[in-house]
C-alpha cells in the first residue's frame, strides 16, 4: 500500500466521520432552535421571501 493510498484512506475515514458529526450537530441545532424559537400564531410564518 502506497503512502498516498494510506493517506487517502485516512482522509476518507476522517472525512465521512466528520460530515456525520457536522450533520448531527446541525440536527441538534435545528431541534434546539425549533424548541426555543417555536412558531407562534401571532408571528408571520417563516417562508421564503420572494
Amino acid at each position: 500500500m502506497t503512502a498516498t493510498l494510506e493517506l487517502a484512506l485516512l482522509i476518507a475515514v476522517l472525512g465521512i466521520g466528520g460530515i456525520f458529526i457536522f450533520m448531527a450537530l446541525f440536527y441538534l441545532m435545528i431541534r434546539a432552535l425549533d424548541k426555543y424559537l417555536p412558531y407562534r400564531e401571532d408571528e408571520p410564518e417563516g417562508k421564503s421571501s420572494e
Binding site: 457536522f22 450537530l25 441545532m29 432552535l33 424559537l37 408571528e43 408571520p44 417563516g46
Partner: peptide, 21 residues
C-alpha cells in the same frame, strides 16, 4: 409551521458552529 426567528437564527448559528469546528 416554522418560526421566522428560527429560520433567521439558523444561518448565523451554523456559521458560528462551522467556524469554530
Amino acid at each position: 409551521k416554522i418560526s421566522k426567528k428560527a429560520l433567521i437564527a439558523f444561518p448565523i448559528v451554523i456559521t458560528i458552529a462551522a467556524g469554530i469546528i
